[in-house]
Simulated assay, not measured.
Amino acid sequence: MANNKFLNNSNDRHAAVTDGVFAIAMTILVLEFAVPTINDISSGVALNQYFINYLAPSILIYFVSFYIVYNFWENTVILFNFNKISYGILTLNMVTMASVCLIPFGTGFLFKFYHYTNANIFFSLLILIISLLYILLFFLLVKSNFEDYFKNKDLIKTAVQDSYDDGIELTNLKIYMRGVTLTLFYLLLAPVISSLLSLLFAFVSPIASILSFLLTLIMVFIIRTRRFANDKLVELDLTDDEKEFLENIRRSIYGE
């Protein structure tokens, strides 16, 4: 009992640190803007050039980066709804947070060098690595929380093939295959796809590479809209603990 209480307290502290990291990262993004001095801008023509060549692209990059960080924070909130979170997963989360802290630097790097291919490649790779870390966190959490399914995977497959004969419990399989955890996986996959596209577009067009991350916003909206009805899980035979667990994740995804 004492160990569980200590672990829960540790999870709460990690969640608090994680929120703090995101709050600071989102605030630092705006500090990357460099305000020109009067010596740099000495005429209306120079001001127009500054706006076109630096300020306008920087504002676009800022909003894209802000949404990316917000999206990662939102996914982290959902992941912390899993019941079993081991020390290994918490450690991996801290590695992920260390990577998130690099986003303001990557954003500032883009502010100055967005028209260079290497700058866009660096930013895209950074977001891709963080996105893959979230995917890894997801699979570790699913494996930990659905341990019964993985231990009896072969028996469950046999039961499915035999039209659910022999009375083998299938609730964990149903949750894994049809529950809101599948929606969460799709949400985590969205920035992976966006960063891969951004990486490809970096060799073609810097602006297209940056705008590719807006695909995450579109994909998240479509995923939540299309899967909303499926995630009600009214047809599944679940235990009270499983229902509570899934409802917590559902509320985190849909804000209910």
Rank of each mutant, 00 (worst) to 15 (best):
T18Y: 01
A98W: 02
E32R: 13
I130A: 07
V160A: 01
A119P: 05
A16C: 01
I38K: 15
L128F: 12
A25Q: 06
L187C: 03
L79H: 03
V35G: 12
T183M: 04
A56W: 06
L90I: 04
N11M: 11
T76E: 12
F51N: 15
Y134R: 13
V77M: 06
H14T: 14
A98G: 07
L128Q: 11
L132A: 03
I135N: 11
F228S: 11
P36W: 03
F221S: 08
I193D: 00
V17R: 09
L173A: 08
K151E: 05
V180L: 00
N172Y: 01
F123A: 10
E256S: 09
V220C: 04
F228R: 14
V180T: 03
N93C: 01
M1D: 01
S198P: 04
H115M: 14
D240Q: 14
Y67L: 11
L7N: 14
M94K: 00
Q49R: 08
N8V: 10
F201Q: 11
I89G: 06
L90V: 01
F6D: 13
N81V: 00
L102N: 06
F6E: 13
Y70C: 09
L197C: 06
G167A: 00
T239F: 01
D148N: 09
T107F: 07
S124G: 08
T37W: 07
I129V: 14
M219C: 05
P206Y: 13
I210G: 02
Y50E: 08
A25H: 02
F111D: 13
F139G: 08
F63G: 12
E74M: 05
D12C: 02
V160T: 00
I253K: 10
T181V: 02
S42A: 15
N81Y: 07
F150T: 00
A15T: 10
V192Q: 05
A16P: 03
T91L: 07
F82K: 03
K112Q: 14
A23I: 12
T76I: 04
G44N: 15
E235R: 03
L29V: 11
R226C: 10
I59K: 06
V45L: 15
F228E: 15
I222A: 11
K5Q: 06
V64Q: 12
I249H: 03
L102I: 09
I127D: 07
L196C: 13
I249L: 04
S99F: 06
L188Y: 05
R250H: 04
